[in-house]
């Protein structure tokens, strides 16, 4: 009997732990974590998230990746906002996760979320055809200024990071140039158009341009990363050419609902950090064609503030906010 009652007590305590407010959360995670991905399955960013989730699942954080590309990712964001701030619903988003609420009335902004960790950053790559004879971004701009309206560039969407970046750069450094932006549905279509001589430049990300850069059909004129890309040591960064302001990457990171206890945020951030330091994970990232750019929940905040400032400047310039 004594044994039974102690068992009963233990079960009651256990039960109590289950219903206790998540704020205490000593045993987080007690159940699988939903990783809501704003991208469809199969893209580089989605694959990267899956690699991290696989690692975390092996180390006690069972993570289920759920793709919710609906409504340009707003559905994933709303599902997180409609759930309890207990760290079991996490959204994986990119730059549009920050910019979309600035442009449209969504009923939420990025400030309703707590940044947890940055997983990968993609620099933007400005490519031309190798047979164009153009060797630097300055040369390209000189031709564009000489032939107004004739020098255009393509990017994979209508309001892309590429377009935002270039519109700021053009305003600052080449105010007289008239350069048209041509939107496509994907980076592959941009490549096709440059191969077909329809465009004067393709502004993409390394993952989609690399096949043609390696085959020699495209030439990389400049990249928006902070350092030169190891695969293309001859291509300068925009920051080298025009100043540190033009370090501009597209981040891909995870967020939880505001109000989630700091302990949980820290635990999540740490497991991502642990994953991104794992050599096996890094090797898988290389295969996908992305890099591990871990920023923990503290470093991610100032980085995002800079992204917000960049976006506000670009979107105001484009007349979108």
């Amino acid at each position: 009997m004594k044994r039974f009652s102690s068992l009963l007590m233990a079960s009651l305590v256990a039960l109590g732990l289950c219903v206790a407010p998540a704020g205490a959360a000593p045993n987080y995670p007690a159940k699988p974590i939903n990783m809501l991905c704003v991208f469809g399955p199969g893209g580089a960013a989605d694959l990267g998230l899956r690699v991290v989730a696989e690692y975390a699942t092996k180390h006690g954080f069972t993570m289920n990746v759920v793709n919710m590309p609906g409504g340009s990712g707003t559905q994933a964001a709303m599902q997180v906002l409609n759930s309890r701030p207990d760290g079991y619903n996490v959204v994986f988003g990119s730059t549009s996760f920050v910019t979309l609420p600035m442009m449209k009335r969504l009923g939420y902004t990025i400030d309703d979320f707590i940044p947890v960790a940055d997983i990968t950053d993609m620099p933007l790559t400005f490519c031309v055809r190798s047979d164009s004879g153009i060797n630097s971004f300055d040369e390209w701009m000189a031709l564009a200024e000489k032939n107004p309206g004739q020098y255009n560039y393509g990017s994979p969407g209508s309001i892309t990071s590429q377009r935002q970046f270039l519109s700021v750069l053009l305003k600052d450094k080449f105010p007289n140039a008239s350069v048209n932006h041509v939107p496509y549905a994907s980076g592959h279509e941009v490549n096709t158009a440059l191969l077909g001589n329809e465009l004067k430049a393709a502004f993409g990300v390394p993952g989609t341009n690399q096949n043609y850069l390696k085959s020699g059909e495209f030439k990389l004129l400049a990249v928006t990363s902070d350092k030169r890309l190891p695969e293309y040591p001859d291509a300068p960064t925009f920051a080298e050419l025009y100043g540190d302001k033009y370090y501009w990457v597209s981040f891909h990171g995870i967020f939880v609902k505001k109000g989630t206890p700091e302990e949980i945020v820290k635990k999540l951030s740490d497991i991502v950090g642990q994953a991104l330091a794992d050599p096996e994970v890094i090797e898988k990232f290389n295969k996908i064609g992305i890099t591990a750019n871990y920023r923990n929940y503290k470093d991610f905040v100032p980085f995002l503030d800079n992204v917000k400032a960049q976006s506000v400047e670009a979107l105001t310039l484009l007349g979108l906010i």
Partner: peptide
């Protein structure tokens, strides 16, 4: 959904689920 060239919203009636068009 979203205008393919300028990225403006068309006929979405502020329903976020319609931002990327009807699936």
């Amino acid at each position: 959904g979203t205008d393919p060239i300028y990225g403006d919203l068309r006929n979405t009636f502020d329903i976020p689920q319609l931002f990327s068009g009807l699936p």
